[in-house]
Amino acid sequence: MTLPRAALLLSLALGLAACSSPARFGAGGPGADGAPLSAGGGFGSGADGVTSGPLDPASPEYFSQTVGDRVLFAVDQSTLNDEARRALSAQAQWLMSNPGYTAIVEGHADEQGTREYNLALGARRAASARDYLVAQGVAASRLRTVTYGKERPIEVCSTEACYAQNRRAVTVIAAGAAVS
């Protein structure tokens, strides 16, 4: 497959995710290079038309910046600590206040583990966060999980300071998935 075709597929996929059909997750997802993944506590590109002034509380940017889009885990663990539960409760509140959005919960691992074990571990972490959101009242049909294992670290050093940030579940509001 050529690159332009891949780009076309990706844009088709995003287009699909943008419509409000029941199959909104059908071909969507974070896409090939997971653009939302690089949002290290802020916006990756700054090219999304975000201008100065308070964020719209109903915007995905508000969710990721102000509500907080991620929770962290201990080594090899997928259990939620108190801080994670507080963060997920806030996420659930936002999702229930903004019923037009769907979300993808990404599970990640640090690099201290084999590739395939970390994929399974990331799946566990994503499900753990997703289950908590559902328990708080978010419709399960609005959430989908994906594991990236150790493929998409947010911090790149090889010490515990970085590993701790990489063992995470990130709730990504599906781009353009608002139901009109």
């Binding site: 497959m1 690159l3 891949a6 290079d33 994929l119």
Partner: peptide, 10 residues
């Protein structure tokens, strides 16, 4: 065998 548009593993 593939382009770099999608993450591929193992």
């Amino acid at each position: 065998l593939t382009d770099s548009g999608s993450l591929v593993l193992a």
